[in-house]
């Protein structure tokens, strides 16, 4: 089985072998491209159809390019108020949920207390419960509270904070688990009391996780439909508006808002990543 045994045709591979080599070389590329197409095509459609100029009430077939929808994004009645409500809810909910979630994460990682294990488990519960169950049972709860909360703005807000907290806890906890406790001991050793230690050392070091939690909560809140639908009463958020209007018409302005939200979210996330990179390269050059 040495050099002598190698047959001459080995030098020129057969057509089949060449085809096989080609497939092997490019399978991963093709697979990746297909994957991204699958992932991004729906978003591409949303963006493209925000520039469509539909003939009828439905924005489902491509008719022609126009800037009109973007220029007159609030031409549809009630769209603006729905969007405003969604933004308000998302902003307050993400702020409150992240603040509470950060504190819960600190308690869970830092302190041993009775019921820590079960708290850890319970925090995950809203993530694993079907949204439809969550929404329906929340409404039942609010109704049984006999108008302590009028169904509307406050019930939507409470619901959103509730399911956002879990995401915030999980995000901040991940960062805290790798946190070197000696850093806080060092700060106290150097004369900083508990509050100053938190402010000068703990907070700056977990800030990226807090920011990530904030963005995540905002993104989840602003497009939540299922839970919101049950608990909104007569208030209309942007997702509920889209759902409601889809039955009678789909104005391209919906795509405009959708695209805008997408662009803002992606920009913020990219900014977060870039900021981290800059920080790290500053520390690593």
């Amino acid at each position: 089985m040495s050099t002598v045994a190698i047959p001459a045709p080995r030098a020129r591979p057969s057509a089949l072998a060449r085809a096989w080599a080609f497939v092997r070389r490019h399978t991963l590329t093709v697979y990746s491209l297909l994957f991204f197409a699958y992932l991004l095509l729906p978003i591409g459609v949303v963006v493209a159809f925000s520039f469509n100029n539909p003939k009828g009430r439905f924005n489902y077939t491509w008719q022609g390019f126009t800037w009109k929808n973007w220029a007159q994004w609030d031409a549809i009645p009630d769209l603006k108020s729905a969007l405003t409500l969604s933004l308000e809810i998302a902003l307050i909910a993400s702020l409150v949920a992240t603040a509470l979630g950060t504190l819960i994460a600190l308690a869970l990682v830092r302190y041993g207390f009775r019921g820590r294990a079960s708290t850890n488990l319970l925090v995950f519960l809203p993530l694993s419960t079907p949204e439809i169950v969550l929404g329906a049972s929340l409404l039942t709860l609010f109704l049984n509270l006999n108008n302590v909360f009028a169904i509307g703005f406050w019930t939507i807000l409470i619901a959103h904070i509730m399911f956002c907290i879990s995401f915030a806890v999980v995000t901040v906890k991940a960062r805290l688990i790798g946190f070197d406790r000696h850093l806080e001991e060092a700060a106290m050793d150097l004369g900083a009391n508990e509050w100053l230690t938190f402010q000068k050392v703990t907070l700056p070091l977990i800030a990226p996780a807090i920011l990530a939690a904030l963005l995540l909560c905002f993104a989840i809140s602003i497009d939540d439909f299922v839970v919101t639908y049950f608990n909104a009463g007569n208030r209309v958020t942007f997702p509920i508006f889209v759902w409601g209007s889809a039955r009678v018409a789909t104005p391209p302005q919906i795509n405009v808002i959708g695209t805008a939200i997408f662009v803002v979210a992606v920009t913020l996330m990219l900014a977060n990543v870039v900021l981290q990179r800059v920080r790290e390269s500053k520390g690593a050059v």
Partner: peptide, 20 residues
């Protein structure tokens, strides 16, 4: 007394320098 009220300072094994 907490560490910040004691007139001692520590060099930690891991150094514990503030990375930020």
């Amino acid at each position: 007394k907490p560490p910040y009220k004691r007139d001692v300072n520590t060099v930690f094994q891991s150094y514990a320098l503030f990375p930020h």
